[in-house]
Amino acid sequence: MQVQSSFKDDKVGHLYLVPTPIGNLEDITLRAKRILSEADYVAAEDTRTSGILLEKIGVHNHMLSFHKYNSKERAPELIKLLKAGKNIAEISDAGMPVISDPGYILVQECIKNDIPVVPLPGPSAFATALIASGFDAQPFTYYGFLPRKSSEQKEFFEQMKPAHATSIFYEAPHRLKKTLKTLGEVMGDSRKIVCARELTKIHEEFIRGTVKEVNEYFAEHDPRGEFVVLVSPNEEQEEVLSWQELIKEVDALVAQNISKKDAIKQVAKSNKVSKNELYDQYHQQ
């Protein structure tokens, strides 16, 4: 067990997870700007992209590259700096660190080495899209970027299909049409989707409709910008059997030489009811 306190201790540095705007620079917080200015180093997914951002918000600091291709080699170097009392602010290209970027590797190493990890709240593309989607925000499942192969995507969509939660994933513009076609093959046209693009930017747009309607829209409009795709929850009501019907299922299994105990257990599990309740109902008949 580990209990972390984010108190200031000059003997060891702190890792600050600093969110950056997903488009509109006005979304930078005062605290984020201060931490980026005061940290000894800024670990960035892409130093060129982040360098432009820091320049625009008036932050001039020493940057270190930290991306998925060098994360395993760079993490020990950053841990060494943190142990020496240096503070590091970790940022991604846009939005929240760790989400769809390698920040979790550095966080794990900090936890192993008892180095405080301090998260700052801020912009997130999938959360921004979710609250404007019109879908129920509770619960939801975020999948990040899907596999590129259609066969592998189908597995994800098969998992999403029965979910009574809003499903969210990211997709690049040049792959969007193909992905939505695969989604339609699995989901049919019974579900609604929202494709949100260029969030917080000038050309922010939400395309809402059934899978078929959105596919038809993109047949006439080329996708541009990064997309957040949201799939509505499965609202089909599952059939709920009465106790008498469940008892008949148990009797049918018992007639097949299955013990009453195992039959009750099997029927309870397949119908998602309490095994103990079904046991009581069965023996009260």
Rank of each mutant, 00 (worst) to 15 (best):
L78Y: 06
I79A: 12
L81M: 15
K83P: 08
K83L: 15
A84W: 05
A84Q: 14
G85H: 08
I88P: 06
I88K: 05
A89H: 03
A89W: 03
A89V: 01
I91T: 11
I91K: 12
S92V: 06
S92Y: 07
D93S: 14
P97E: 06
V98A: 12
I99S: 11
D101H: 02
P102H: 07
G103W: 03
L106N: 08
Q108N: 15
E109R: 09
C110A: 02
C110I: 04
K112G: 10
D114T: 10
D114E: 13
I115V: 11
P116G: 09
P116N: 11
V117R: 01
V118N: 11
V118P: 06
L120M: 04
P121F: 12
P121Q: 09
G122T: 01
G122I: 06
P123L: 04
S124L: 09
S124I: 07
A125N: 05
T128S: 15
T128D: 13
T128P: 03
T128M: 12
A129F: 09
L130D: 03
I131M: 15
A132L: 15
S133Q: 10
S133K: 01
S133C: 07
G134V: 03
G134K: 02
G134F: 03
D136P: 03
A137Q: 14
Q138T: 14
Q138N: 15
Q138Y: 14
P139K: 00
F140Y: 12
F140W: 08
F140I: 07
T141P: 02
Y142H: 10
Y142P: 01
Y143H: 15
G144K: 04
F145G: 09
P147T: 13
S150G: 04
E152Q: 15
E152P: 02
Q153L: 13
Q153I: 00
Q153S: 05
K154W: 00
K154E: 06
K154S: 01
F157N: 04
F157A: 08
M160D: 01
M160R: 02
K161F: 07
P162C: 13
P162V: 01
A163I: 02
A163N: 15
H164K: 15
A165T: 10
T166M: 15
T166R: 06
S167R: 00
S167D: 13
I168N: 11
Y170V: 06
E171T: 00
E171N: 03
A172D: 13
P173T: 07
K178G: 11
K178M: 13
T179L: 02
T179F: 01
T179R: 04
L180I: 01
L180D: 02
T182S: 12
T182D: 03
L183V: 01
L183I: 00
L183W: 00
G184K: 03
E185S: 05
V186P: 00
V186I: 13
M187P: 00
M187F: 12
